[in-house]
Design a protein around this nucleic acid. Structure first.
Lengths: 238, 238
DNA sequence: GTCTTCATGTCGGAT
DNA sequence: ATCCGACGTGAAGAC
């Protein structure tokens, strides 16, 4: 049964003990209250006082969430060390990362709530509709790309990176397929073009290498780039 | 002062009332307990029962966090409608999005904790060390790029997109600068190349357009691509 | 570790 | 609304 430690309007000492207990026992902790946040590492940031929800995960993750946006306003990734502390009577949460060296400091002016949760979760997310699923569909039914297409390899390595699907067409030409699960812009065309160029150099001179972008749709700019590069497009939903 | 509503081991009815109150009053709510999650929209997913922290923001965001990873295992973006409900005696949280149509359902088998927080936060994050800061440094001191460089425009539009910095060198050649705040791979080279090509077509024939990638460093593959495309690299930390 | 690419990417700004 | 690119992108897989 999921265990819950909770403290409303905790004294800083109380919050400290709760977070230290959480860390010792591998709990998921949350703090809510008025705080300032500073970050320094790959970039630097400061955040003036405001009410935020801070989440501490046993894997070292820190999330600082405001009342809006999906993304945290500040964070630390897994692998960081939580360093809760009292200073001048206030509760501080520090988080340190090495390689790259990055520090996050959350200084609470007021703590409204602190909790620690014992979370057990063995389940894996089962996700479908990814690019890998789109690839499998084409491998199962190559004619979705075009009649006569024969897949030869997936993730085939080239000097420019791995090709999603590598195959041949009914004329024996090499076909490079780049898959995207959603509408694509210019970047995907550049990616496909790199693969086609790389394979054109690799294969014996004279071999024709076709590049086919597979996606639900393309933007105008991307379509223009495809034409300039002599590349093709096939529309497929993921 | 930040207000806190909280309920340990709430009955489903209690949790429903708390979340409904939170929604009415624009509160940030959290739920912790054993739940299953299904998502259907741009992709689809299912998640077997486990203990998770669910965060509901007044802007419509939903986050489902497990005890590990920085990213939520499931989520809905801002703008969605929270739809808490009781069904067969269990607490359900549904979230609906339109355009694209996406649904998230969290079904709680057991609720260990529910909270609602009144969060007021007017502060904006002050972030430095971004690409915009790197650009300003070059505008302030163009010789960081090379002696004689003269910036003429930022975000100059081309058919292929906006150029970070557009300028001229000491010989009067056009210079296209693409900035990256971190080590770059092949993608950034493709981006720069698109701009150079687009400007080469735009400008009168015979004009030389140089492309310069500015970043802390480049990968080997990217360096090779730069050479193939006749593009240049200048190392600058953000 | 580095490199490369995917992502239900998210987010902001411009058109 | 779509398009485009930045992001302290994060996360996974390959090497």
């Amino acid at each position: 049964m999921a265990e819950v430690l909770t403290a409303v309007d905790p004294e800083p000492e109380e919050a400290l003990e709760l977070v230290e207990t959480g860390e010792r026992r591998g709990l998921l902790c949350t703090l809510f209250g008025r705080c300032r946040v500073t970050y320094d590492g790959r970039a630097s940031s400061t955040l003036a006082p405001g009410d935020r929800l801070v989440v501490l995960k046993p894997d070292g993750t820190v999330l600082v969430h405001t009342d809006e946006n999906q993304q945290p306003v500040n964070w630390q990734p897994p692998g960081c060390t939580h360093e809760p502390a009292l200073e001048d009577g206030a509760f501080f949460l520090r988080s340190r990362r090495t390689s790259p060296d990055e520090r996050l400091v959350v200084r609470f002016e007021h703590l409204a709530h602190a909790t620690a949760y014992n979370a057990t979760d063995a389940a894996d997310l089962a996700l479908s509709g990814t690019e890998a699923d789109l690839r499998q569909r084409i491998l199962d039914e190559p004619s979705l790309l075009e009649a006569g297409f024969e897949p030869r390899a997936t993730e085939r390595e080239t000097p420019a990176g791995a090709v999603d699907i590598y195959g041949t067409d009914s004329d024996g030409n090499v076909v490079v397929v780049e898959l995207k699960r959603r509408r694509v812009g210019p970047d995907a065309v550049g990616q496909l073009n790199r693969y086609v160029e790389a394979l054109g150099r690799d294969l014996h001179a004279g071999a024709t290498v076709r590049g086919v972008l597979v996606a639900p749709s393309v933007t105008d700019t991307a379509r223009r780039l495809l034409e300039e590069r002599g590349l093709e497009f096939v529309s497929l939903e993921p």
